[in-house]
Each structure stands twice: as structure tokens, then as C-alpha cells.
């Protein structure tokens, strides 16, 4: 139960950064941390004690494996997380070029 709780605390750290930080880069870092927390939670949920990674090395072997399904879902999620982070960073770069700041309170004032 402790690993699950650690994931939830990590998720709340990310959420704190997203909701209460005023710097855009910190908000993006918060999003990344939330993604790590969720991915890790899934991997923990499929973990089985005394089991092997789900790779068959011998046809007749005893199939005592961890759950491959959450791993497959997380594999797609990790790649999507990178793509969305790159998109957010590109937008942040454009915002900086226009407003010369990462502070969302300054950006709120519309300009030209």
C-alpha cells in the first residue's frame, strides 16, 4: 500500500505546481510529474511478488509473470507524455518571445 500512497503524493505535488505556480515552466514540470506518478501507479498495480518480467525465454517455462497489460498501456502513455510536453514547451517559448516573461500574472495583460 505504501508505494501506491507515494504515487498519490507525487501526483499531488504535480497538481500543486500546476494550480499554484505562476511560472509557465514550473507548470509544465508539474504536468510531467503528474504523468510520472500515474505511469508509476499503473506499473505498481500490475506488479506481482516473486514473478518475472513478461518475456518468454523458454517454451516450457512456468508462466509466473507480472501483469503485462498495465505495462502495455503505460508504454503508449509515456510516449504521448513526451509529445504533449514538447507541445507545451513550444507554446511556452512563443509566449516568452511575445511577452518576455514566463510569469502568468504578467501575461494576463493583453498586448498588441
Amino acid at each position: 500500500m505504501v508505494p501506491f500512497l507515494a504515487c498519490i503524493v507525487l501526483f499531488l505535488f504535480g497538481l500543486y505546481a500546476v494550480l499554484l505556480k505562476r511560472n509557465i515552466i514550473k507548470i509544465i514540470i508539474g504536468f510531467s510529474i503528474m504523468e510520472y506518478a500515474v505511469n508509476l501507479f499503473f506499473a505498481f498495480a500490475g506488479f506481482k511478488r516473486e514473478a518475472l518480467a513478461p518475456i518468454i525465454t523458454d517454451v516450457g517455462m512456468v508462466r509466473n509473470f507480472v501483469d503485462p497489460l498495465p505495462q502495455a498501456l503505460v508504454l503508449t502513455s509515456i510516449v504521448i507524455a513526451l509529445a504533449t510536453t514538447a507541445l507545451m514547451l513550444a507554446l511556452a517559448m512563443r509566449i516568452y518571445e511575445k511577452y518576455k516573461t514566463f510569469d502568468i500574472a504578467e501575461i494576463r495583460r493583453l498586448k498588441g
Binding site: 500490475g46 518475472l52 518480467a53 509473470f65 507480472v66 503505460v74
Partner: peptide, 9 residues
């Protein structure tokens, strides 16, 4: 947690 594919990615 025995997820080598995830670790590589």
C-alpha cells in the same frame, strides 16, 4: 517492478 520495456522507453 519487472517492467524492462517501460524502463528502456
Amino acid at each position: 517492478v519487472q517492467a524492462p520495456d517501460l524502463a528502456i522507453v
